[in-house]
Design a protein around this nucleic acid. Structure first.
Lengths: 355, 355
DNA sequence: GCGAACCATGTGAACGTTCGCATGACGAAG
DNA sequence: CTTCGTCATGCGAACGTTCACATGGTTCGC
């Protein structure tokens, strides 16, 4: 007859009593210590099954000073990149035997990141991964090592598109600069000469790094760098950019800083009867699940989030060993149907920028 | 000069020594117990700041038998629904003062769900939320209450589109059946008569519930129920469905079980010169961020993930109290430009199904 | 001016585990 | 037969908290 009180969680002692041995022996069995005879092991196993014993990880964590938990701070935005990185880290952590404590930060808030990090420090994690796409966050995370005393004991890894080293914080970076260059280079190779960039918000590091990559590639090829159009990652801002481009005269090609903005832009084009890629080539960034279903399927840049997550964990678990594998993850360009060679005729001569 | 040994985490005792009081007093301060004089509180606060003290939550959890952590099991798929629900739960948990331990299950694996749940039981969580879109998962989760002894002490909430009660498992459901009916009803009201459904994989509960909703609404209006086309949630399967529809003759309208499938289908239409909504109306499901940037913007069904997450936590924290607020979350239809009234002419007379 | 009530603070135990060491049994080597 | 090593097992302490209760000091009411 079940009593009304909540049945207490069985402990090592309860199991031991049932198995007729000491709690220490039971502990050895749960930790698969070799030094226990087969006979007793069997009895203990049976007792464990009978009582439904599960080891209390709080007690374990208390004495070993190791929780087996990694905290991940991520961005509240629904952007594809941060979410992919979260999944990547989770997968890597699980494989390494860690659990993942996740915390989604309210958007754009300093206070929030700070208190999130403090909460993690409280929550007994063995390490923290900060997915920091915002410029301000990255800066704040960089200070963590020097401004929070707890950070001295807690390894912090920041996942950012910018490999600038920081005090006490390990950095895993995605080479989005390269990604942007690949995208731009592809357009140049196709013979396009005026290549406009529809940029993401410059508050995000991703936004400015992609912008710079585009600029760098153009100048490397001696091409003029047109005025970029600044969007806000949203589809609507992509749409607005598209309309502006139509009004001001179409370039040969557009490199959008995200697939979502590319889609919004393509909607504006479609409405106005501008054909992609016949009238203008379009490249996106992210390789969002939706991108290959665009009309036409979008040429875009993919980052390997899984590798990214694994890299984060590697670094975190290696502790403060030498930071040798600081090399960023290389993105890949996926060529689909939204880009095509420039329609011959005009000479594809290199234009030299003034100065 | 920093010693090479890792500095030990300061404890209540260390703070107490510095502040010149007992550890108990310090404990009262950190827990903001009123019964401590202002003078000592100030001294203690100073000592806390000086030592960089953070309370050890493992020790706290050990003695209070409450970890302040909720485990969330989610689907490995990148589908919008499960991910949205995860964010919703996280938000609600954070507001209620809980942390969220997340675990992404390998797709389609019984073993994996089982071991994930066991891992959570070990990991000292106060409750578990299972986001269970898969039919098989839902079934397994339902058994949890009866097959795992630990589940008796651990509240489990399942988030599923199906409100069937289960032993020992609380259920929060989204009324996707209603969502599908709203979508179908909208099309019927616009005067469409043959309305095909491009279904999601029937392995997912969402898939079959949406299918049934569509079927129910059609029969409620006395309309014939055409053969559905079965997809797999992927954009490619939506594309394939679109091509099949073009080949076999277009219906008045299509209700796709997800926005992604709708996009794939619209790509097939676009390629073939079929215009949306002029030639065929299209409705999706999810209100994915991308949906409003489709050409044309997609009419779709939105679920309130935030509310869903809050509901889960409410139920989880209320424990096994009366399960009164079992009412499912109601979705909303968002009408955009992918649907329009049927081009007059034909009489919109109700067709009576045979039998 | 004395007991009651109140307040700030301190003490001891407990939570469930792991770690280091002690114990006793047994077999092998001397 | 002794001595030592090996093996299975047990015991006590410690980890850093919170909880229930104890203590001593101040203030109140009669």
């Amino acid at each position: 007859m079940p009593s009304s009180t909540t049945p207490k969680q069985p402990s090592l002692h309860d199991v031991a009593k049932l198995a007729g041995c000491s709690y220490q022996t039971v502990s050895r069995v749960v930790n698969s210590d070799a030094r226990v005879s087969d006979a007793t092991r069997e009895r203990v196993m049976a007792a464990i099954a009978a009582t439904g014993y599960r080891r209390n990880s709080a007690a374990r964590a208390l004495v070993t000073a190791r929780a087996g938990v990694i905290g991940v701070v991520t961005d509240g935005s629904w952007r594809y990149g941060p979410m992919g990185a979260l999944y990547g880290v989770e997968e890597a952590a699980r494989k390494a035997g860690y659990s993942v404590l996740m915390s989604v930060r309210e958007r754009d808030s300093f206070k929030s990141l700070e208190s999130t990090l403090e909460a993690f420090a409280d929550a007994f994690v063995d390490g923290i991964v900060v997915i920091a796409p915002l410029r301000t966050e990255a800066a704040l995370t960089r200070q963590v090592g020097s401004s929070f005393s707890w950070a001295r004991r807690l390894p912090v890894v920041m996942l950012a598109p910018d490999p600038t080293p920081a005090d006490g914080v390990l950095i895993v970076s995605e080479d989005q600069h390269l990604g942007a260059r690949l995208a731009t280079r592809h357009l140049i190779r196709l013979g396009h000469r005026t290549i406009v960039h529809v940029a993401g918000s410059q508050k995000w590091l991703d936004g400015s790094v992609r912008l710079e990559g585009w600029r760098a590639e153009l100048t490397a090829h001696g091409l003029e760098v047109p005025e970029p159009i600044f969007g806000k990652w949203t589809g609507q801002s992509g749409y607005d950019a598209g309309r502006r481009l139509i009004k001001s005269g179409l370039p040969d090609a557009v490199f959008a800083a995200s697939d979502l903005m590319a889609l919004g832009m393509m909607r504006a084009f479609h409405e106005a009867g501008v054909r992609v890629p016949d009238d203008v080539s379009v490249v996106g960034f992210d390789d969002h699940e939706f991108a290959r279903q665009f009309s036409p399927p979008l040429t875009t840049v993919r980052q390997d989030f899984r590798a990214l997550g694994h890299r984060c964990l590697e670094l975190l678990l290696a502790g403060d060993g030498e930071p040798k594998l600081r090399e960023p993850i290389r993105p890949r360009l996926l060529v689909r149907l939204s880009t095509r060679p420039r329609t011959a005729a005009e000479p594809a001569e290199t234009v030299v920028t003034s100065g």
